[in-house]
Design a protein around this nucleic acid. Structure first.
Length: 543
DNA sequence: TTAGGGTTAG
């Protein structure tokens, strides 16, 4: 907060009043008399100017003048004040103002603007309150509020408000649909995605490049890469974002060669790639171990397309070498970066150190991360476990306990009958848990008979083998899979989503399950898809 | 006399 604002706030006379200027020190930045008929206009102009000012002092002063001249209840000035305070991040002042003027005094457009401003600042609950109190709402109101929920990751509410919009007979437009399509992709809910797609066709919404890109992305993120491909074939390829959505979708599914082929087709059709295209193509290479091609594309960016690599491109390169076990080269990339590596890059490096059992480099990565989160501690501790340094691993866990950092718990979801069922590791809260455990235990026995050996090294603590095995058996993705087996018909595909990366043990276990039960299992983890069929996974065990 | 849509490293 600037010195000026601090001074202004210190002017306060009445402790119960939040306004910093309500004192004898109030001054006006414009000179006119209260009877001046153009006073209102001048105040409006003054507030408009405030938006270009560096400090909020001018807003405070104009606000003081507004009150001094008796314009306090003027809705148009109040709304300008609200948005000005939002501009300067003084949300408490904006909220207070909204309480002082009755809503019916505001025009619809003003309230829309207020909702948009609060949503932008992340104050979702206030925006929601304004929406609830509104007597009239238009298409802009609905789009703003739904978009606000999506922007602030309040997915469930976004979907609920979309349904409310439909039942209140407000016709959604292409903007509403692109928001809701994006939403379905973020959640990864295929049934909802199909329903929204059907509605889009029914309402004859124009399939422009934004909607097309969103649809391709949605189906990719819902595990339906074939549908995404067929949409890509049908729509116009007139914008780079449509290509980017396809390349990124293919990368997410580990289809690096298809992503590369799409890139070549793009070049053939004289469509210029942008920096996002290269993020997609580098990701595709890194997820499939194509280090040489990755390096070539990284160079191509500069030499052929004059695109300067950004942080995320360097991130992909670190990941490319890191995953391949070429930790020295990954470290060289970090050291050679023209900008400071961010925490994402160090975490990618740390993750590679865990996979390739290198605690030395792991310590380097950890020393560079200023605020370690639970995942970082777990990765480091796991790195020590991977080389059997149990004492050091325990020290890390001790540090975690001391700092009261708890391990983020694995969660998995499965969609069934339009409902998303969530499971945590070792969870017993689901109403059908008894049957779920029965199925899971039966399956564990059967898979063991097939010769499956649990990857017990993964369980962090240095405890007995038996305990470790018990811990692994009830990982959230196994519970979700068991629920899928319980609810679906034999032979049908089972789709599970997880908030973290799939663990190696669950991955090998599911490969055997797919073979024994002759079923396709699709697992969407934090960063990619695994399509498991007949004992093999689309990731080729490289992830 | 308002706001707003898509693709982005782990």
């Amino acid at each position: 907060m600037s010195r000026e604002i601090v001074n202004l706030i210190q002017w306060r006379k009445k402790p119960s009043c939040i306004w910093p200027w309500r004192s004898s020190h109030t001054s006006s930045i414009i000179n006119f008399h209260s009877t001046d008929p153009t006073g209102h206009q001048l105040l409006v102009q003054s507030l408009e100017k405030c938006k270009y000012s560096r400090s909020s002092t001018d807003v405070f002063r104009t606000h003081a003048t507004i009150v001094k001249l008796g314009y306090e209840t003027c809705a148009s000035l109040t709304s300008l004040l609200v948005t000005s305070y939002i501009c300067f991040n003084h949300l408490s002042f904006s909220r207070q103002l909204l309480n002082e003027v009755p809503y019916w005094k505001f025009k619809l457009v003003t309230l829309n603007l207020i909702i948009a401003s609060f949503m932008k600042m992340g104050d979702v609950d206030i925006a929601k309150k304004v929406f609830v109190k509104m007597r009239k709402r238009d298409l802009i109101t609905w789009n703003t509020v739904i978009g606000g929920f999506v922007r602030n990751a309040r997915f469930e509410e976004a979907f609920r408000y979309f349904k409310r919009m439909l039942s209140s007979n407000m016709e959604p437009d292409k903007y509403t649909f692109s928001l809701v399509i994006t939403l379905c992709g973020r959640v990864g809910a295929l049934d909802q995605a199909k329903w929204v797609h059907g509605l889009l066709i029914e309402k004859r919404i124009e399939l422009n490049f934004v909607v097309s890109a969103a649809l391709i992305d949605m189906y990719s993120k819902c595990g339906r890469i074939e549908t995404a491909k067929s949409i890509f074939e049908k729509v116009k390829h007139d914008d780079v974002s449509v290509w980017n959505a396809m390349i990124n979708g293919l990368a997410m599914h580990g289809l690096a060669m298809d992503a590369i082929a799409t890139f070549s087709k793009m070049e053939d059709e004289n469509m210029l790639p942008d920096s996002i295209t290269f993020v997609g193509i580098l990701t595709a290479c890194s997820h499939c171990g194509l280090t040489q091609q990755g390096r070539e594309y990284f160079n191509l960016m500069r030499t052929k397309y004059s695109i300067e690599p950004q942080l995320e491109h360097y991130g992909s390169m670190v990941d490319l070498f890191g995953r391949a076990g070429r930790l020295e080269e990954a470290y060289e990339v970090i050291k050679g970066m023209p900008m400071d590596p961010d925490v994402v890059i160090w975490r990618a490096f740390l993750s590679a150190c865990r996979t390739h059992r290198n605690p030395g480099f792991g310590e380097v990565a950890v020393s560079k991360i200023s605020h370690l989160d639970s995942g970082d501690y777990v990765l480091l501790s796991n790195t020590y476990c991977s080389v059997s340094k149990w004492d050091t691993a325990e020290n890390v866990r001790h540090m975690m306990r001391q700092k009261r950092v708890s391990k983020s718990r694995g969660k998995s979801w499965i969609e069934f009958g339009g409902v998303i069922h969530q499971f945590k590791s070792g969870d017993k809260s689901h109403p059908e848990m008894e049957q779920i455990y029965k199925i899971l235990e039966g399956l564990i026995g059967r898979i063991k008979e097939e010769g499956f050996k649990p990857v017990t090294e993964l369980v962090l603590m240095d405890i007995s083998e038996e305990e470790k095995e018990e811990n692994l058996n009830y990982h959230s993705e196994k519970l979700a899979l068991a629920y899928g087996i319980l609810k679906s018909s034999p032979g049908s595909e089972i789709r599970v989503s997880k908030n973290l990366r799939t663990c190696i043990d669950c991955h090998s276990w599911m490969k055997l399950v797919s073979k024994v039960l002759k079923r396709v299992i699709i697992v969407r983890d934090r960063i990619r898809f695994h399509r498991i069929e007949d004992g093999l996974c689309s990731c080729g065990d490289y992830w």
